[in-house]
């Protein structure tokens, strides 16, 4: 006997269910939410409201796609909400300054990426905990926005093409939703099918192993934070264009919604396992909960409590019930 002993293969169906248990559970949870809210409010399932949900969800979704890459490496980016506020305020200030919006948009995307690169440098090349670096970013970046606006909301003139980024419609769908779709498709292809996504997963699973395999781990780590910076810039532009103003108070707490969406979708906070499809469903679930509670005339003071409870319930179901049902044989979670 000179061959390795191999165990008998289990049922393929059970294995497939186990692999996708998290995705199936968040999909199921999303559908349950949709059913509940459509019963509670006749307006919920109308096309107009659903498109509204999509438009509301777009900034969260755009940032969550990038955040999925960060969390898959085993990192976290707490600074996204503040980066959105910074870009949001800068957009209004620069346009009011008289700079053409066609030049402002690429400049903002560049600034967002640079903010991400700066944080990524501390994380990847200086070995500082992502939590600490981006916590500092969370504080400092919104501080810069406050300093620039002095706390006031800066209006953006409505006549220019810029506001179309947030308010326009193409083929019956709001422009922000289109941007989110592009981000989600690009993220899905990159994470599942391209070398970059494979390396991001490998770093999250075992960073030293990835380095020993010749993967440029530092460069990849830095670039995922560039991605969240870029995505935050896009979200900041979309929000500024939709609201027609820039404010340092934009997107307060966005980082929590984004992280909740990613975790709801089954991406592991420990790294090594990420799902863009799950993130999309997670972001939509959060948007649906927010929208549905308003339509159901739940007191706005209650909505935060209910949303928090629902998210905890979903993650708990995901971790304890669905995955165990689907995968009696799974070894590691």
């Amino acid at each position: 006997m000179t061959a390795y002993t191999s165990r008998p293969a289990g049922s393929r169906l059970a294995d497939m269910l186990a692999t996708h248990a998290q995705l199936l559970s968040i999909a199921g949870f999303f559908l349950i939410m949709v059913v509940i809210f459509s019963v509670m409010s006749p307006v919920f399932l109308t096309t107009g409201n659903l498109l509204n949900v999509l438009r509301q969800a777009a900034p969260i979704l755009i940032v969550a796609v990038a955040m999925t890459f960060v969390i898959t490496t085993g990192g976290i980016d707490l600074s996204v909400g503040s980066t959105v506020a910074l870009i949001n305020a800068l957009a209004a200030i620069l346009i009011q300054f008289g700079i053409p919006w066609q030049a402002v948009v690429p400049a903002l995307l560049l600034i967002g990426s640079a903010v991400g690169a700066a944080q990524g440098w501390f994380i990847a090349y200086q070995g500082i905990q992502p939590f600490i670096v981006t916590l500092a970013g969370l504080s400092a970046l919104r501080g810069i926005a406050l300093l620039m606006t002095e706390g006031f909301s800066v209006p953006i003139p409505g006549g220019i093409g810029f506001v179309q980024i947030g308010r326009g419609w193409f083929a019956g769908v709001p422009a922000p939703a289109w941007i989110a779709v592009v981000a989600a498709v690009a993220g899905f292809l990159a994470l599942t099918g391209m070398r970059f996504g494979r390396y991001v997963t490998a770093i999250g699973a075992n960073q030293e192993a990835a380095r020993r395999a010749g993967i440029p781990t530092r460069r990849i780590l830095l670039s995922v934070y560039v991605l969240t910076g870029l995505a935050s810039a896009v979200a900041g532009i979309v929000i500024a264009a939709r609201l027609g103003s820039g404010s340092s108070n934009a997107a307060v707490g966005l980082e929590l919604d984004v992280i909740a969406a990613v975790v709801l979708g089954g991406t592991s906070l420990m790294g090594g396992r990420g799902s863009i499809l799950g993130t999309i469903l997670g972001a939509l679930t959060i948007a649906v909960i927010g929208n549905g509670l308003i339509l159901a005339h739940v007191s706005p003071f209650f909505t935060q409590i209910v949303a928090g409870a629902i998210i905890l319930l979903a993650v708990w179901l995901n971790a304890r019930v669905f995955s165990r049902l689907a995968a009696g044989t799974r070894r590691r979670t």
């Binding site: 070398r195 494979r198 997963t201 490998a202 999250g204 699973a205 075992n206 030293e208 192993a209 990835a210 020993r212 395999a213 010749g214 993967i215 090594g272 396992r273 590691r332």
Partner: peptide, 18 residues
């Protein structure tokens, strides 16, 4: 061993030279 647990067998064999 330096393997990545969440990547499949083929992916681990080709890690770094896909």
């Amino acid at each position: 061993l330096s393997l990545c647990d969440t990547i499949d067998v083929a992916g681990n064999l080709f890690l770094g030279r896909e």
